[in-house]
Design a protein around this nucleic acid. Sequence first.
DNA 1: CGCAAGTCCATGCGTTTGCATGTACCTGGC
DNA 2: GCCAGGTACATGCAAACGCATGGACTTGCG
Lengths: 162, 162
Amino acid sequence: MSDEDAVDRGPGRTRAAVDAWEAVFRLQATLLRRLAADDVWEDLGVREYDVLHTLSRRPGGRARLGTLSEEVYLPQPSLSRLVDRLERHGLLAREPDPGDRRGVLVALTDEGAARQRRIGGRHAASIARHLGEMEAGELADLTRLARAALDRATASATDQAP
Amino acid sequence: MSDEDAVDRGPGRTRAAVDAWEAVFRLQATLLRRLAADDVWEDLGVREYDVLHTLSRRPGGRARLGTLSEEVYLPQPSLSRLVDRLERHGLLAREPDPGDRRGVLVALTDEGAARQRRIGGRHAASIARHLGEMEAGELADLTRLARAALDRATASATDQAP
DNA sequence: CGCAAGTCCATGCGTTTGCATGTACCTGGC
DNA sequence: GCCAGGTACATGCAAACGCATGGACTTGCG
């Protein structure tokens, strides 16, 4: 995904960062394609499932639309329409937020929760099929390092002149 | 991104795989958003740049459209239109493939190559800014493990009954 | 209280996406 | 050489995306 040399702390430093990004990018891209291709999604897409999944791990199976928007990495207007669709399919419902009348709570219906569990089980198996070949230690290390990188990136998000 | 327990070789095995996928997915998603938000892209998008970049590392700065399509993880019709746009901007050109008259070679123009270098340099710096906080060892391990995972995933793509 | 500024979600609109299909070309068997 | 089947790219069309904006509500300050 990238090129060239740059500043910061050393020349190979940039190269190492770029290599890491490229490797992670490639891994995610091909894995996502494979997972999406696996026939586990019934009639909805990966993004739709991600919303159901995220809601399912929330107390009460509901969350504010804005919150959800950040958690599933989807811009708010896109999520709003996606919720429209899932609502039409009866998998979730909008409710007014009692504490803030501007807000909207998105809630999993029973059918939505059931659907999430069915798909979730198959999806997990699918992931295991694709990554299961890795040794347990490698898998754990990959998880740890990816989380570490995410932490660093999140931390360093504090720049830009105000 | 996922849930539940499943089969394969053990119970925690699936959990470990799911955790790894989730960590990698999150890392890529937030990093991609950050990188896309960094003001280095002039007037084109990440996907457009990816095409220029991929072409730039090819002998002659050209490749078959189909080949390119796989390398940038973009379905062929989508790439075809994306090439339309870049062609309109004068950054690349279509040429007939001399060896196969069905084929189309996509070639970087001089302007396209120059643009790629400019953006590439800034983009690399941007990556270094976001990941540079990591220790060199961690960065190298992350790269190694992501590549290993990709290899395993690619290898195990040989199933499904014929 | 009253109002200016800010937050939250929905919608208009132009662009991009991707599936399904069409057209041109290549290849192998006869 | 010819034709059936396969491959490569383009295009029609419906869906989805995302930015910019609009309308509803909240908050904080005078």
